[in-house]
Design a protein around this nucleic acid. Structure first.
Lengths: 197, 197
DNA sequence: CCATCCCCGTACGGTACCGTATGGAAACGA
DNA sequence: TCGTTTCCATACGGTACCGTACGGGGATGG
């Protein structure tokens, strides 16, 4: 499999993508030059021409993640016309993809590495960006800013927890037909913005 | 600091505790014999007398975690007389402890390592055990088994997400007085078992 | 006081990875 | 075609860790 386009020569982007994949497979510790080089069918000689050292590769992978897994998802959700539909879409996008979704594995790995000096700022920015976006969605539903922020925090918390649960113990979640029913149950509890009180 | 009691000689339990601490600090990968030995003021010679290899140490640490961080927490919550109070207590116990809570760091690290062959079964058992316990709490509130299971899943999901958020980006959460207000907001959304529909 | 066993330190070989040095092949402009 | 630049493989030293071998000291029972 490896890399079929640009056969032979590699770009810095190729290395960054491979590093991000490695993060999904084995966490930050799996961003090791020699194993990734082998996976790309190359050697360290190539790597140290494109990057100064291992940390630079980690940074490049994080930039890739920060750009792809935040802005891209938001852009996709923005296609939905209705704000209520966007919230549902946000959860569906993340839930669909199954247990082995690479996206989720990367999320979990980076969350666990939040103490890492290179990871911390990226995770912080992405988290704040996502919560702010969800808060905007609630405001579009007519919720005032302060409660919108609360609802966004709870929705994001639920989203993270769900991702973790799917990743760590998929067996406890409902399967088949019950799966979508449970998802509706969760979404209803999040989209209910307190009309009753 | 190191280990002051049992000065000199070490037990297998000492190694297991140190390994669990290491997991909290740097994940499964941080369970390395020589660094832990240094932290205990000993050498590998001691370790390989008490354990066959590194995997055995990981297993011992996981057994310690599985026992302490599940049954102990449940036992403490069981002290609360009212079921509603128990649910709140469950969240308060986990939230209180601050950002740097060792407990949370271990949770996050193990969740991220759920793909590890030694970690997977432990995480699976603990997860199922916790969800079943929360489902029991909801049933004590008069909720039938099926919806109780759904509510327990959502509550546990929220709990996990909250733990992740506290660990990865504590800055996005409300601080000071708003913190407990937000917590009440979350708890209300979880303890509300659908009386309105 | 001595022998035995428990516990541990030291020394060694092996593996995996980081980073550097250097030569050379492939692409490219003139 | 030829020189130059771009890109990469090989080889090397250094570090951190795993697991084994072995020897010795300290506790303990007689």
């Amino acid at each position: 499999m490896a890399n079929e386009k640009t056969r032979g020569r590699l770009t810095a982007g190729d290395w960054a993508r491979a590093a991000l994949t490695a993060i999904g497979d084995g966490g930050i510790a799996a961003v090791a030059v020699e194993p990734i080089a082998a996976r790309l069918g190359a050697t360290k000689g190539s790597f140290y021409w494109h990057f100064a050292n291992r940390d630079a590769l980690v940074e490049a992978a994080l930039r890739l993640w920060e750009q792809q897994h935040t802005e891209a998802v938001i852009a996709r959700v923005e296609e939905e016309p209705d704000a209520r539909a966007r919230i549902r879409r946000l959860f569906l996008d993340v839930t669909t993809g199954g247990t082995e979704a690479v996206e989720n594995r990367i999320e979990v790995a980076l969350l666990a590495a939040a103490a890492h000096p290179l990871v911390a700022p990226a995770v912080g920015r992405v988290t704040e960006r996502r919560i702010a976006y969800v808060a905007d969605l609630y405001e579009e539903l007519g919720v005032p800013p302060a409660p919108a922020r609360r609802h966004a925090l709870l929705a994001f918390t639920t989203w993270m927890g769900h991702t973790q649960l799917v990743h760590a113990a998929p067996g406890v979640l409902p399967t088949g037909e019950d799966a979508s029913a449970y998802l509706d149950f969760v979404l209803d509890s999040l989209v209910d913005t307190g009309e009753r009180s």
